[in-house]
């Protein structure tokens, strides 16, 4: 009987094992979705950005060859569309391509968006163009989820400028709202103030907020050149320039130090006047001459420009001044006042 007692548990164990094996074989659990936790990263990958750049560059290149400005719309928007259209017009008038900014998109750096909402903006800095002009900082914009990324604006960087640091491209950089208060001035105000500074230079009450820059120096030199030329004829020359922001939204992206890179479109008008009676002046530059057409010559030349500026706005607590990093200054029309 002992043997019986011994075998029974064994049998029970064996039977149980077999039964359990049989049963478990029938019920394999359905997997449930295991989604990765959302992580902070750029909403546009670098690979995607590359494709976007290629698509935009393709459109730009095609349009540049064919001078069909209408075809720009699918991939250009806002100030960029306006400015490029103007450039094409001027280039057509001048019958050469010098007015056309080189927009080939070989990038040395991309600044990708981290915001999941729209509009989204990415930025990119090109390598040095073949014509040895300075690199171009471009801004791309996706207005809504069902829109494509479009070139929204660009500036030529100032020679020797140091760009602020941005977050890693993988992480993406946050957009800064136009009224962001963490900066020395809000992006919107920064543009307004800078327009004032460009217009009246040192006489602006905001002059202290801005470091001197190449653009302001350019107007000083250029104005002096024009005035001197007129004065040579003793015509009492005068030169003035007036800037104002456009209604296009200001774009800003956070830099690593908490500041922001601010880009905005402006328009400007420079007026050259020969105040002496009887003096007449014509368009000063090759481009304005091409745009001048057969208008009568008067004592006034007004040149309208489309502008784009990019500036670094330091964080509020910083002692730095707002500094220009790049601009684009494209004559769009000229008139005799």
């Amino acid at each position: 009987m002992i043997r019986m007692r011994r075998t029974r548990p064994t049998a029970v164990v064996a039977t149980t094992l077999v039964t359990v094996g049989l049963l478990t074989g029938c019920a394999e659990e359905l997997p449930t979705p295991k989604a990765e936790a959302p992580v902070a990263e750029a909403v546009v990958t670098q690979a995607q950005e590359r494709e976007i750049l290629d698509k935009v560059a393709g459109v730009v290149e095609k349009v540049t060859k064919q001078s069909q400005a209408d075809d720009l719309a699918p991939r250009l928007a806002g100030p960029a569309l306006d400015i490029r259209t103007t450039q094409l017009k001027v280039a057509a008038a001048r019958k050469d391509s010098e007015p056309l900014t080189d927009l080939s998109m070989q990038m040395q750096q991309v600044i990708l968006p981290s915001d999941e909402t729209w509009p989204r903006s990415s930025y990119a800095i090109t390598v040095q163009p073949k014509d040895l002009t300075t690199p171009v900082l471009m801004a791309f914009d996706q207005a809504s989820a069902r829109d494509q990324y479009k070139l929204w604006g660009w500036v030529r960087l100032l020679p020797g400028v140091t760009m602020p640091q941005f977050a890693e491209a993988e992480l993406g950089s946050a957009a800064v709202p136009p009224d962001d208060a963490s900066l020395k001035t809000t992006p919107t105000d920064a543009i307004k103030q800078y327009a004032s500074v460009l217009t009246v230079d040192k006489d602006s009450k905001y002059a202290d907020n801005f470091a001197d820059d190449d653009l302001r120096q350019f107007f000083r030199d250029y104005g002096k050149l024009q005035v001197d030329a007129i004065n040579k004829e003793e015509c009492k020359g005068a030169f003035e320039v007036a800037y104002e922001p456009t209604k296009d939204p200001v774009k800003a992206v956070r830099t690593a130090d908490g500041g922001a890179l601010v880009m905005a479109a402006m328009i400007s008008k420079e007026t050259i006047t020969a105040k002496e009676e009887g003096c007449e002046i014509g368009p000063p530059t090759k481009t304005t001459q091409a745009l001048w057409g057969d208008a009568d010559v008067t004592n006034v030349v007004e040149v309208n420009y489309q502008d784009m500026v990019a500036m670094y706005v330091p964080p509020k607590e910083s002692e730095d001044q707002i500094s220009l990093v790049g601009y684009e200054h494209v004559p769009s029309s000229v008139s005799n006042g």
Partner: peptide, 24 residues
């Protein structure tokens, strides 16, 4: 696409969400 992008694209349109397996 990423969830954010897709849902952003879908926006307010009605859509069906596939939530998992109900059977094999």
């Amino acid at each position: 696409g990423s969830e954010v992008d897709v849902l952003g694209w879908v926006g307010d349109d009605p859509y069906d969400s596939v939530t998992g397996l109900s059977t094999w």
